[in-house]
């Protein structure tokens, strides 16, 4: 009786050990083959850019009371952005040494005009309501145009006058 019991106990231990060893050695004999996946992620933020061309406007020689048609083209380009941008504008007073004339003598328009016709420029930043469409992967560069005109007021002292116009894109 005791011998049988011992035999069955030994067999039990033997198969138990074999089972445990098989379980432990399975990954070693059959290592997991193929590829492991590494998840990558990126958060793309919304952005807009600005690039204006040209970087100066020349109105040439103008007599007092004369006007330059609102047709001087400036292109504002968003190269690489992904949302629409609004064009904002502001300017400085025309100055030639100590002589000046008003910033509002310069006007702008979203469309080219055959006369002096547009919105007067101001010294504070103003939303022009001219929008640059959102660039896309297929069309990564979008732009819009602003046309400028100028009227020299009567009585303006002769001189070489300059002004600074600032373009700002907002999104």
């Amino acid at each position: 009786m005791l011998q049988k019991k011992n035999l069955s106990l030994l067999l039990g231990i033997f198969f138990g050990v074999i089972g445990v060893m098989s379980y432990l050695s399975f990954p070693l004999i059959y290592p997991s083959s193929g590829s492991s996946n590494v998840n990558a992620n990126v958060v793309v933020s919304s952005a807009c850019f600005i690039g204006i061309s040209p970087n100066s406007i020349t109105f040439g020689n103008m007599a007092p009371t004369s006007a330059y048609d609102t047709n001087v083209l400036v292109t504002d380009t968003d190269n690489g952005g992904n949302v629409a941008a609004n064009i904002l504008l502001e300017g400085t007073t025309w100055a030639s040494g100590s002589n000046t004339f008003a910033v509002g003598q310069t006007n702008y328009n979203g469309l080219s005009q055959s006369s002096y016709l547009g919105v007067s420029l101001t010294t504070s930043l103003v939303d022009t309501a001219i929008q640059i469409p959102a660039p896309t992967v297929l069309s990564p560069s979008t732009s819009n145009t602003v046309y400028f005109g100028l009227e020299v007021p009567g009585g303006t002292t002769p001189g070489t006058y300059t002004q600074t116009i600032t373009f700002e894109n907002s999104c």
């Binding site: 690039g51 100066s56 109105f59 300017g91 600074t164 600032t166 700002e168």
Partner: peptide, 17 residues
């Protein structure tokens, strides 16, 4: 940016409401 003679100098930037 500079200008030779009379005219407007253009500068650029970004704005945030």
């Amino acid at each position: 940016n500079t200008i030779s003679g009379s005219g407007a100098i253009l500068q650029q930037g970004v704005a945030k409401i």
